[in-house]
Write a protein that binds this DNA or RNA. Structure first.
Length: 287
RNA sequence: GGCCCGAUAGCUCAGUCGGUAGAGCAGUGGAUUGAAAAUUCACGUGUCGGCGGUUCAAAUCCGUCUCGGGCCA
């Protein structure tokens, strides 16, 4: 008998290095499920070690989907992720299995669970143009085009200002109008979701991060990055990528590399905890 | 053994002419609907190595001790 007759997805969230992969495998086995990636960087091919994607041994235990499916030169975003994940999830359900969706990319998960606001997709050329302008000019332009959006945007955050402006320019409408209304039904959606967020003490998490970084460096991260360093892509933003490249290039020593990765990973984990803390539908799972 | 330099936040250090101290990093909390492993905001009490002394007032000047580092024996 299927313990989950509805085949509704189970979400496994939590900060990096908290043990999402193994919990997902456990849940998948208990619920006759298959695992779907929700990690922005594990999507990429050739970044398995640096992004700490599930190992071959782990993948052999349960079917895994959406790992290493993007070319390193491809650019991804939350909407593309939903486009990739939705059919995979439906397909799993159609076979009577339960999708176990796991990953630490809060925004991607949010799009998947709560849908996308009706906004235009980012435009690389426009972004490049905006990147060459001063923040003051971008802010002034946003204040002119959409004062309401400007008033509720963190104007020191160039990314947020650019995005708001981008929406106005590409759509010909006010970002504030397009964004309004989107959040109205989130509470209702949330009430129907089921998922867990792994919780660990900071001390424990930091220790796990340190162990993982060490394993990563000993487990082929240098070769992986060396193989990819000719490619300019989103992968360069992965924590560990630049640090390992600096190590490979002899700019820093191994101990420094390790500590830089650890610090960046700790900071990332903290941001993830902040994000998931707001997702009240996630049930804390103390490990 | 003698001389010199150093000791200030978890770390690296700044601190003017004596007026009880502040940067970066780390850390903590927050924001975050199409770059998100991204981007961004806020948060700084610490025996100023110890003990004496001078002074209205000492991280700052003097003495001494301790611990580093160096030079000379």
């Amino acid at each position: 008998m299927n313990p989950n007759p509805t085949n509704e997805p189970i979400y496994i969230c939590g900060p990096t290095a908290s043990g999402k992969s193994s919990l997902a495998i456990k849940m998948a086995r208990e619920h006759d499920g298959e695992i779907v990636n929700a990690d922005a960087f594990q999507l990429y091919r050739g970044l398995e070690i640096v992004s700490a994607a599930p190992s071959a041994a782990e993948r052999a235990l349960v079917p895994h989907h959406l790992y290493g499916v993007l070319d390193p030169t491809a650019s991804a975003d939350a909407q593309l992720y939903v486009k990739l994940a939705s059919p995979v999830i439906s397909e799993i359900q159609s076979r009577g299995k339960t999708p176990v969706i796991t990953g630490g990319s809060g925004l991607y998960l949010k799009f998947l669970t709560h849908g996308a606001a009706p906004l235009p997709t980012g435009d690389a050329a426009l972004r490049a143009e905006m990147d060459s302008q001063s923040l003051e000019d971008l802010v002034a332009r946003l204040q002119q085009l959409d004062p309401l959006e400007a008033s509720r945007t963190a104007l020191q955050n160039r990314r947020f200002v650019s995005r708001a402006l981008e929406i106005c320019i590409l759509s010909g409408q006010k970002a504030s109008d397009l964004r309004d209304g989107w959040e109205k039904q989130t509470a209702e959606i949330s009430s129907k979701l089921r998922g867990f967020v792994i919780q660990r003490t900071r001390e424990d998490l930091h220790a796990r991060i340190a162990l993982r970084t060490k394993a990563m460096l000993e487990g082929g991260a240098l070769q992986e990055v060396a193989a990819m360093s000719a490619i300019s892509s989103n992968c360069e933003k992965a924590i560990g990528f630049r640090e390992v490249r600096s190590l490979v290039n002899g700019e820093i020593d191994r101990a420094t590399c390790e500590e830089l990765i650890n610090a960046a990973t700790r900071q990332y984990a903290k941001r993830q905890e902040t994000w998931f803390r707001r997702e009240k539908w996630l049930v804390p799972k103390v490990v």
